[in-house]
Every structure is written in structure tokens, then in C-alpha cells.
Design a protein around this nucleic acid. Structure first.
Lengths: 213, 213
DNA sequence: CGTACTTTTGAATCGCATCAAATCTGGTGG
DNA sequence: CCACCAGATTTGATGCGATTCAAAAGTACG
């Protein structure tokens, strides 16, 4: 408490663990108000944002006023591609009150160029995101709530079980379902013996029920 | 025909353009039969596959015999993450007769380590994939065919228009729709004046119709 | 000309979204 | 400790849109 308040975050978000200390040194925690604009299309990227809490979106607004959301970050980086680009192609907006970690883009690029270990870690992070996103796309293409649930547990969980880190309601967002549909599908699966629930832990039955009965 | 069959591909797929010549030298064109297994979970990655035609999938098979598709590659790399990993975590299977380009993993990693330009290009490719996949996930979370179409054109096209490189039917796969639903939605949008179609070119009307009438 | 595939339209069905409302929960302040 | 509030959880009823099954028409290619 007696230490100065501008001290760097002592225990950063686990997702940021691979950042080199020098980069974490210049990281800044920022609080965004709902509706606040972080950057506009055409701006030069000056910071890379890592969402800690809330929701930041990457959105393209058309001449006709249509809004197309390109990314919805509720945890993790917003617009990784801005590292590679001299200009933003979309707007960045806080959809609700949010907390993020801002990394100066110059320092980030410099660290990437200078630090081979960091480069490797960044590359690993990128391929991991690709893997997750591909799985998510396959999941969202399934057209029943039950299939999406099973797919999620199989692809994001460990050994046919998953520990939910958030409310069921926000899980519904990830699955592209309304929370009502998810609650109902979970209840149906549990009644059918296809899953069991222990608090935040959801486990798949090892042998799926045949469609009999 | 008189030339040896093991000649290297003379004009590789545009998606492979960033590969250094040395790596392209040892690329092999492979033809996979429908159902053919490329690798099993637990295998050591020996080649990185780039799909030219057909469909390769990354699939996890559970003890219960459930099949969960993690990736469906109809064009582009299969399992980029295998570059970072000593073992596959899924099976790789050709879902139908397919043609792919196989890059020896050792040479690929070696080139990554030795060639800074290639490393940068690979990183750029990875971030580009992330951008595309995030947009795709947002798109698949939309629950009307019309919204997905508009989102696709806005995010994958240029200036509110897109040149389709494939049949409408296979576009439907990307949009997570049946082909019937896509045909109907396209016809409805065209009748409503929200899009126009010129052969393979689909253009958004600049000002979206108000919901009036 | 025939085959395979895409494109198109039709009709019936099913599941999810939507709107509504009740219950439960954790946390706050009186 | 209890009243109260915001949010999550749960259940119900209804409508819409996509899926599904079916079939016809158009198109490319040998």
C-alpha cells in the first residue's frame, strides 16, 4: 500500500505471460467507458490492446451505416493483425465498460525483432489462436445446441470434461446461442445421461447414448 | 509425360507464394484418396499439408466413437499448429479425393529458423488467418442467412463487392448454410434491391433498404 | 446425347430466437 | 440480520427461419 500506485501490474493476466519483462514494463492498464472509441480505420496502430474485462470490438462501418463486427474480444488480444499493419482497417470500440492492458506498438515490434524467444512465443500464440478459431468455426457451423456443447467440451476441454471459467450465460455467447437455448440443451443432455454437471465442471458421458428410445 | 514425375510444381498455389525457393524445391504434390489417413493423433508431424483441391479434415475421435471436426481445409494449410508441436493431437483425413502440397516439416522449421524474411511472411500469414477466422466466427454467430451474406461481402470483399471464386453451393458451406437457404436468401436480397449479381460478382447496394414496407 | 453437377422452387418439419415471467443467487446497505 | 437489488438461472408459449426431403430445370463436359 505504501508503494507507489504506478507500479506495473505484479501478476499480469496469464494470457500475457509470454511477454518479455521489458515489454510488461511499459504496459499500461486502461479503463474504457462504454462506447469509447479506441481507434478509427485509417489510424496508425499505436497500442496493442489485451482485454482483461469487458468487451472490445473491431467493427467496420459501411457508407450505408451498416455495422459489421469483425472481432469481439472479451478476453485476449484485440486485432493482432495491427502488429503487421501500418493502418487500422476497422474501428475499435468498447462495447461496455472495459478494462484492458495497452502495449505500445513500437516497443512490441521492437521486442519481436530483437528477442528470438519472444518471437517464438508470439508465433506459438498465433498458431494456438488459429487452432482455437478453426475449431470454433466448425462448432458454430453445427446446427444443434447439443452438438455445439459436445464439440466445445471435446475441443476446449481435457479428457471429455471442462471447467467453466464463466457463467453459463456468457458461455452461450461463445456457442452462438441464446442463454435460454443453452440452459435447455444442458438440462436435456443431463436428463438423457449424456453429460453430468458438478458446479462449473461439465463432463461428457464416455459412451454417447444411442438414439434408441 | 516423358519428364520424370517427381518434378517440382512449376507454378505453385498463390497461397504458397511466400515460401522460400529452397522450401518449394522439396515440396511434393500428393494425391489423397477419399478416406485416406494422413496422420494419427500421437504421430510426429513430418509434413505440413497445403490443400490445393478437395477437402482434408482434422478430426478428433473420442473413446465413445464420436467424431469432432476441428478443421476442414478446402484450400490452404491443414494444421498450422503442427509446426509448433512434436505430436499431432488429432487425426488428419482426406474426406474426399484431394490434391495437396506436402512440405517436409524439418525443412519448414529449418527455413523458419534460418530465414528472417520467411519468418516475417509466415507471421503475417498467421495474423491474416486469425483476422479471417475471427470474422468468420462473428459471421457464423449471426442467425439469418441475409446477415451472413452481407457480413461476408463486407469482410471478405472489396468496397462492398465480392468476386466469388467458387460455386454458390460451396459458398454455402463457408456460410454455414444449406445451399437451398443461400439460394433463397440471395434471391430475396436481389428482389429487395439490397444486392446485385453479375455472374460471379455480388455487390451490396450502398444504402441498405430501411425495414419499411 | 447422356451424365454429373449446380441452380432453383416447393412443402413440411423442427429447433432456436424471442418475449415473458418466476426463482434463485450473491452482494450491499440500512 | 434482514431488506433489497442486480444479475444469473430456469420454465413457458409462440413464431419464424433454416433444415430437410423432393423434384425440376439449367449447365458443363465427354
Amino acid at each position: 500500500m505504501s508503494a507507489p500506485e504506478n507500479r506495473r501490474a505484479p501478476a499480469p493476466h496469464p494470457g500475457l505471460g509470454f511477454l518479455p519483462p521489458a515489454l510488461l514494463e511499459c504496459a499500461q492498464a486502461v479503463t474504457l467507458a462504454a462506447g469509447e472509441v479506441l481507434f478509427r480505420a485509417g489510424d496508425r496502430p499505436e497500442r496493442l490492446y489485451f482485454v482483461l474485462d469487458g468487451e472490445l470490438i473491431l467493427v467496420r462501418v459501411t457508407r450505408g451505416g451498416r455495422e459489421v463486427v469483425l472481432q469481439r474480444a472479451r478476453s485476449g488480444f484485440l486485432a493482432e493483425a495491427s502488429v503487421e499493419s501500418r493502418r487500422y482497417h476497422c474501428d475499435g470500440v468498447a462495447r461496455r465498460t472495459s478494462c484492458a492492458c495497452a502495449l505500445p506498438m513500437g516497443a512490441f515490434r521492437k521486442a519481436l525483432a530483437a528477442d528470438a524467444a519472444f518471437r517464438a512465443a508470439w508465433q506459438k500464440h498465433l498458431t494456438g489462436e488459429i487452432r482455437r478459431l478453426r475449431a470454433q468455426s466448425e462448432r458454430l457451423a453445427l446446427n444443434s445446441a447439443a452438438e455445439r456443447i459436445v464439440h466445445f467440451i471435446e475441443s476446449e476441454g481435457e479428457g471429455g470434461a471442462i471447467e467453466l471459467r464463466q457463467s453459463v450465460k456468457s458461455w452461450a455467447l461463445d456457442l452462438g446461442l441464446t442463454h435460454e437455448a443453452l440452459y435447455r440443451a444442458l438440462a436435456r443432455l443431463e436428463r438423457g445421461g449424456e453429460i453430468t454437471r458438478n458446479g462449473a465442471r461439465v463432463t461428457l458421458a464416455s459412451r454417447p447414448r444411442a438414439t434408441s428410445r
